[in-house]
Nucleic acid binder design. Structure first.
Lengths: 205, 205
DNA sequence: ACGACTCTAGAACGAACGCTCTATTCGGTA
DNA sequence: TACCGAATAGAGCGTTCGTTCTAGAGTCGT
């Protein structure tokens, strides 16, 4: 069922309670992790009540966390799609993506890292649902990079392998940058990934 | 003051209470994160009492977390030193390191990832001490890789830059492998890092 | 006008949290 | 032997946790 605001087709200025809860949960868990984020904090910052939270997510905190990860997944996938489209050459596009990520991370005062890592880490053993949602997110992002490489003429195997390393390296570099409060890891990862992509292109031609 | 067992020079079979607490805290926080790990759980699994924990760590949970990260730092530095010494060629050594990490991760049923990431993530904004200890760990590991590259003849700038990316990529690949419960990210990261190192060596010669 | 239903609202529950406190045991030194 | 500080031991503090519960407000078809 949709709320009045949604039915009226109002713009994003007013958003449904459920969506507000998911967005808030995603942002808070991204910053504080699963255990560091309380349901009450989520409901307060989302301007919702506990009743609403448990109405929309009868599965409780775990169900909410899964939805939060899926939200972060979609969010980053859109961002990545845009960044990959910024240049025809995949090496250039990925280096640009690294710089964009570095800028956003610095702008948030090194607080907003990967939207799924903090939530997934530490819950993997306890909550298979959360771990699975995080794995799906990684796989989706990898698929976007792979498609970009395939479109640029890379062979199927090379594209898949490179996509794995691109996502891993970006993820790790964002982590290192966040912990060190320094964008150098992301800058260097971007440059090295571009160099690696070009090296693989040359060896396979 | 040291305990009787330590003074007597007994082997690792008996270890002091303080060390036992630190090791347990490091292992638990590695798996469950900072907020997911309780002081009481640590004291129980370390076969110590709450009184002992607060006797050795009057700064409470935060002080204990800093010591836990430092412990993980030293532990991984030793592991990395050994892996880097396994081959003269740094490219081979790092690829071997990735494989070793993959094996250990799989062996722990994808539970024991990086010993500092889970603890540092989510506490960065709240606890500067913890964030600083994690940053120091990353810097130390990077220094080890840089020294290996320098010893193999890489120029200072190239070695430092590559070391950044090696640590970032290994970190991210371990994360991806843990979340996906699949060692492919670590295997590919090792192969690609070796390829990247060789490419840099050739361009600078 | 009216039941049916969705959603909002927040008090209250037991459990667990980090931490403080006092009491007790123990080994080394005077 | 007497003593002292290190270390152990755990009851209990106030707070917060995730969750449940009942009550009310808003909106629809009929």
């Amino acid at each position: 069922m949709r709320t009045r605001a949604e039915r009226a087709g109002e713009p994003e200025t007013t958003v449904g309670t459920r969506e507000r809860i998911v967005r808030t949960a995603s942002r808070l868990m991204q910053r504080q992790g699963y255990d560091g984020t309380g349901i009450k904090q989520i409901s307060q910052e989302a301007a919702a009540t506990l009743g609403s939270v448990y109405h929309f997510f009868p599965g409780g905190k775990q169900e909410l966390a899964v939805e939060a990860i899926r939200h972060g997944d979609r969010e980053f996938a859109e961002l990545l799609t845009g960044m990959l489209a910024s240049a025809e050459d995949p090496a250039e596009a990925i280096e640009a993506a690294a710089h964009t990520l570095a800028g956003q991370l610095r702008q948030s005062d090194w607080v907003d890292g990967c939207p799924v890592t903090a939530t997934a880490l530490g819950t993997a053993a306890r909550a298979p649902d959360i771990q699975r949602a995080a794995a799906e997110a990684f796989a989706r992002w990898r698929g976007l990079v792979e498609a970009k490489l395939r479109a640029a003429g890379f062979a199927e195997g090379d594209a898949g392998d490179l996509a794995h390393t691109v996502i891993s390296a970006l993820e790790g570099a964002e982590l290192a940058a966040q912990v060190s409060r320094d964008e150098t890891p992301l800058r260097l990862a971007g440059a090295h990934l571009a160099q690696l992509i070009r090296a693989v292109r040359n060896t396979s031609s």
